[in-house]
Design a protein around this nucleic acid. Structure first.
Lengths: 117, 117
DNA sequence: CTGCATCCTAGAGGATACTG
DNA sequence: CAGTATCCTCTAGGATGCAG
């Protein structure tokens, strides 16, 4: 689980893989890319994550420099998440990924399902 | 670890995340996208994976329909890996990802290191 | 509202040895 | 050459409860 560490920071693919390893990272980035969001807004958008997990994923993305965390010191607390510069650049990837993901779903899940989320 | 299963096949991001969850999947796809490769060629390109791990990653990519596995029944055996149709389409993502990954590395790893792999 | 602390489990992936 | 078969460790992430 640690043998690719030496490639992080050198190989763009290994580095990207590492940064995006969170199970929900792509979805979170997608939502935040559309609009700055508060913690509970993200929760409502993704009811399948627990609070603890959402927190961890957000921390990881923040530590990796993809998102910004702005805290309003007030009661009750308010925290907003937005994309960093490099996070904004990731939109290019996200767009291609969405297109590809839809094609993939079309070709692998032929059943009629509810619309995308 | 199973709570996003219901979104696989519906949400392109969750689906993509799942398909690409292997630690080496992006790198493997990158190499195969350039050229059909044999098992031992992949091994030599990525000396950090053990045989067992490489096999598992390839199996996963094959099961997810991204790569093709062609077996030549001869002695010694010969197996070639190449991209499937949907795998070829993934090149669009890969290209953007590589560009972004390099930018990310530039902005986060300022030290002078050996060239990319 | 936005977390952190704790516990727990599944499974990814590394190491090593063996095989048709 | 291209794998299996084991074993073992580690950590991501789910569940739940508490807190400023």
């Amino acid at each position: 689980m640690k043998e690719n560490e030496k490639l992080v920071g050198r190989c763009p693919y290994v580095t990207a893989q590492k940064v995006l390893s969170g199970k929900w990272s792509l979805l979170i980035l997608h939502y935040i890319s559309e609009k700055t969001l508060r913690f509970n807004e993200l929760q409502r958008l993704m009811p399948d994550l627990t609070q603890a997990t959402l927190t961890r994923q957000l921390r990881a993305l923040e530590e990796n420099g993809l998102i910004l965390r702005k805290v309003y010191h007030q009661v009750p607390p308010k925290v907003e998440y937005s994309l960093s510069d490099i996070g904004i650049e990731f939109n290019e990837v996200l767009e291609k990924l969405e297109v590809w993901g839809k094609k993939y779903i079309q070709s692998h899940f032929q059943a009629h399902l509810e619309p995308d989320i």
